[in-house]
Write a protein that binds this DNA or RNA. Structure first.
Ligand code: FES
Ligand code: FES
Lengths: 144, 144
DNA sequence: TTTATTTCGGATAAATTTATCCTATTTATA
DNA sequence: TATAAATAGGATAAATTTATCCGAAATAAA
């Protein structure tokens, strides 16, 4: 469904959010330990999230990654997915035609559209805050 | 969403079905021309579909690929996807945890489950016959 | 200002997916 | 039986994704 990079990116953003509520910055090392991902690869993904203004980075000693506490609720899952995987998963044709076009539909278009739109809606309506709070409360988990 | 191999496999199966209604067998060459896919790679995927008893192959002169006309309606999209990509797309965890487990859910589990189940349902309820008939009638397309 | 810490970013490598090529095997027909 | 046509399958290559490594740049504190 999502690329590995995207899975790591989502989990990393959630973990950073939980720590940001505590006013703490986190390093790629802490993040990869917490979400069970390769450290250097995760660092690359973090750079991409920074470039897309989804998370914030602070260089140098006592630096790390964080998200503005007051903004966590505004970050949508769709922004993260779009930053890493692009929008093809919820905009593209399910059978790989150049584009999804009502006037030139692939064989599964009518059947697929509903699923894809529901996915899109879910990604656009889900924000980091609710995901982070469920992690903090122990209702959900980032690894294993 | 699906791998290229899976996209080709689905389109190939649909095309083979349309020709099987006419009592005709088709070659990888015809198939790849019709669905706009690399011929040798497509041939490999066809072998996999044969092994999973989704399509039938006839070797030698006047041979080719076909599907038993009376069986086209029984072939579900889920069988094709499962034969090529496995079931992870509609059974696995959306964030890549070892398995999707209600008792150890990832952060998006509750949100993702609905989409994934709808996808599963769609794949299990859609059969080759309806897809092939829409191609024959010109209501849908296999390429561009 | 020096040092320790930390992200940034380029180069490279490993793994997987996608794609090609060539030969063997099978089979219908002449 | 000989031949031509067609799938099967192994070996290999190209492309993409995933992953690692290392030095440069930035920054806070001593
Ligand atoms: S054309 Fe394929 S999903 Fe719309
Ligand atoms: S645990 Fe991740 S989708 Fe169910």
């Amino acid at each position: 469904m999502f690329s590995k990079a995207c899975e790591y990116g989502i989990k990393a953003a959630i973990f950073i959010a939980t720590k940001s509520y505590e006013g703490k910055r986190v390093s790629p090392k802490e993040i990869s330990a917490e979400i069970d991902s390769p450290q250097a690869f995760t660092a690359k993904i973090l750079q991409a999230l920074v470039k897309h203004n989804i998370i914030n980075s602070v260089k140098g000693a006592y630096g790390g990654f964080e998200i503005d506490k007051t903004n966590i609720g505004n970050v949508k899952l769709s922004q993260i997915v779009n930053a890493i995987d692009g929008d093809s998963i919820y905009s593209g044709c399910g059978l790989g035609l150049e584009k999804c076009d009502e006037n030139h539909p692939c064989p599964v278009h009518d059947k697929f559209k509903g699923v894809r739109d529901e996915l899109k809606h879910m990604l656009e309506e889900t924000n980091l805050e609710e995901l982070a709070l469920n992690i903090k409360s122990g209702a959900s988990f980032l690894k294993l």
